[in-house]
Amino acid sequence: MQIDLGGKTAIISGSTGGIGLGIARQLAASGADVVIVGRNAASVDEAVAGIRAANGKARGVVADLGNAEGAQALFDAEPHADILVNNLGIYNDVDFYETHDQEWLDFYEINVLSGVRLARHYTPGMVQRGWGRVIFLSSESGVAIPAQMINYGVTKAANLAVSHGLAKRLAGTGVTVNAILPGPTFTEGVANLVADAVRQSGRTAREEADEFVRRERPSSIIQRVAEVDEVAALVTYVASPYSSATTGAALRVDGGVVDSMAI
């Protein structure tokens, strides 16, 4: 299967690092014109330069998509998209009783409303052109809510609800909407989370991340963290013309963490 996204513009939120950057790289490798979006100009420039160095087409927009003003800045710079990947998200490890109202609101604004705003803006153009792909990055935590990350899990569950409902709203238009559910994935953020354990054990960050999966997600079938490219590969397929019969779906790339044959 040869995925060709030539002539398609792909906007990926939160794409200066981690899963978002991995998705941008793979979409660019498949021929898409990718738009890197992030809050830090230096990080945006670095991500764009890396993709161009690999002969991909990329440009960047500096915008804080965690608020309406930042979303408008993106809309002004990039009015149209054929592929929208709502990847922006934050997470932490805070007990329910120590998570105050403002933190709940911040998580909802960034993890949920950012994608809602972008989808609301870009999908009318997709409908007019008769083709489009909208992809929300949810998480296995949106199905199996972690006791230590309840606020995060709630927002990831909301991603599933929005994507499924929007898919039905856009029925028959040629625009598909799907959610991707990664499991624990080896990113810079995960490496930072296990940094203390690395210092204590002397193991590598990857080894500690794998140990975290075995300890905290024992239902994992692969018994390790996923690689960013493994998640990005599924996103690239869903963004392609080959996925035209897939919409309203919650597609897991969680390594089998969710112990179920269906969502």
Rank of each mutant, 00 (worst) to 15 (best):
E211K: 12
R206E: 10
R224S: 13
V194M: 05
G165T: 06
R199Y: 04
H164T: 11
R217A: 07
V177C: 12
R206L: 15
A239T: 08
G202W: 11
V231G: 01
S240R: 09
D210L: 07
N151W: 14
E208T: 06
Y242R: 09
E207N: 11
S220D: 12
G174P: 04
Q200V: 14
S220H: 12
T204Q: 08
R214L: 14
L160V: 05
T236N: 00
A197H: 06
L160R: 03
I221H: 14
V154M: 15
V231F: 02
V231H: 00
A232M: 04
V225M: 13
A195T: 01
N192C: 00
A167K: 01
E211T: 13
G174T: 06
A158Y: 07
R215Q: 15
V175F: 10
E230L: 03
T246C: 13
E207V: 06
Q148F: 10
A179N: 00
A209G: 10
V225Q: 00
T204V: 12
G202V: 14
L181T: 01
G172P: 03
R203I: 05
R215K: 15
Q200Y: 04
A245V: 12
L160C: 06
K156A: 10
L234E: 00
V177H: 00
R217G: 01
A161V: 05
V175N: 04
R217P: 00
A197W: 04
R214A: 14
S220V: 13
I221V: 15
L181C: 08
A167C: 08
P184R: 05
N151E: 09
A239Y: 05
M149H: 13
Q223P: 07
S201Y: 08
G189D: 09
T187N: 05
L170Q: 09
Q223C: 13
T155L: 11
N192S: 12
R199T: 15
G165N: 11
G153C: 06
V228G: 00
A209Y: 04
A179Y: 00
T187I: 09
E208G: 11
A161F: 02
R217T: 10
A209T: 10
G153P: 11
L193P: 00
S244T: 08
D196T: 13
F212N: 10
L234C: 00
I222V: 15
A232W: 01
T155K: 07
G174K: 04
V225K: 05
I222L: 12
V154R: 03
A197F: 05
R224N: 09
T155V: 08
G189S: 06
F186K: 04
V231M: 02
A158D: 02
H164M: 13
R215P: 04
E208M: 15
G189R: 09
A233S: 09
N178T: 05
A157V: 04
